[in-house]
């Protein structure tokens, strides 16, 4: 993996380094794709963390893996497999949720989720095994890669992300209402269940996008950690969304640059940077709560954080 060896290596001359970085078309594509994915994942992820659906996101990511492997096996693009399976998976999750009082206790629920996740991975592994000579491809499907992203893929990612963000923009306010207080929202005539299904589909789209950069196993790095950190920094929705996007994009860019100049894989860097920001959010929060200004404390007391 990550067999890039930079022509000149890191020189501490930032201008030449950046110039060199963008001299290769594949690096330009990687930056474009990474940015698009980071924005989409951060925005959808913010709502996902708010709605406490991180394990749904995790499951959808694992369902995307056999999709991508199967698509490669039958000779279509892995991206189509990611999108197809993740969206289909989202609909299935939504259907099982909607079928009423399926919650017969946590252990039942988690046994189902665990079985589904492991079965998805096993199916993916089967497809990989059937597609001979694909051994290193497994690692890029699971842990991400930034090599070989084509211009066509960048356009596809952009198109899907724009559509997803427009839909999210349209349903944003009622979704926020329904996420924070579903009962009151339902009483006020908000279509809580429809919004839930729509959001799961959007989550599937965002997961499929993120999987193409971070791999199926590391989607948390772009989907969860920036959003969770942002929600620790600020309880305000707009500020939180902006912060989440800023963190995700910064982490992706840093990961790409460092991975380009080092032999270690990008998935490691992106998760590590995102995790560092997440940890920092705990520290900052702790310090603010300890030595925070009076207005900040009053605000936190009022929103109950």
């Amino acid at each position: 993996m990550s067999a890039t060896t930079a022509a000149g290596g890191w020189s501490w001359n930032v201008v030449t380094d950046v110039h060199q970085l963008f001299a290769y078309p594949f690096m330009v594509n990687a930056f474009l794709a990474g940015t698009i994915v980071a924005v989409a994942a951060a925005v959808v992820g913010w709502f996902m963390v708010l709605r406490r659906q991180t394990f749904a996101g995790h499951t959808l990511a694992l369902i995307g893996f056999p999709g991508a492997a199967g698509a490669t096996l039958v000779g279509i693009s892995a991206a189509a497999g990611y999108f197809g399976f993740a969206i289909l998976g989202a609909l299935v999750v939504a259907a099982t949720r909607a079928s009423g009082t399926a919650y017969r206790g946590f252990s039942e629920e988690s046994a189902v989720v665990g079985t589904v996740q492991a079965f998805a991975l096993a199916a993916g592994f089967l497809f990989v095994a059937l597609y001979k000579g694909f051994l290193n491809g497994v690692n890029s499907l699971l842990f991400g890669t930034f090599l070989g992203i084509t211009v066509g893929q960048v356009w596809a990612l952009l198109l899907v992300a724009v559509v997803a963000l427009i839909v999210l923009g349209l349903i944003g306010r009622p979704l926020l209402f329904a996420s924070v207080d579903p009962d009151v929202a339902a009483a006020r005539g908000v279509q809580v269940r429809l919004l839930g299904v729509l959001f799961l589909v959007l989550l599937g789209v965002a997961v499929a996008e993120a999987s193409q950069i971070t791999g199926s196993l590391l989607v948390f790095a772009l989907l969860v950690m920036p959003a969770a950190a942002a929600q620790r920094f600020t309880p305000r929705p707009v500020a939180g969304l902006v912060l989440s996007v800023v963190i995700a994009v910064t982490v992706t860019w840093l990961g790409l640059v460092v991975a380009y100049y080092s032999p270690y894989p990008m998935g490691f860097y992106i998760t590590t940077f995102a995790f560092a920001v997440y940890l920092a959010s705990f520290v900052v929060r702790y310090l603010v709560d300890r030595h925070g200004s009076a207005p900040a404390r009053a605000l936190h007391a009022r929103v109950g954080t």
Binding site: M1, A221, M225, Y264, G267, F268, T271, F275, Y278
Partner: peptide
């Protein structure tokens, strides 16, 4: 909560890829 657990273990997996390399 699930966010904390998920984040920690995503990072641990990331470390795994690092050791793999």
């Amino acid at each position: 909560d699930d966010v904390v657990i998920g984040s920690v273990f995503a990072w641990i997996l990331g470390l795994g890829v690092f050791f793999l390399t």
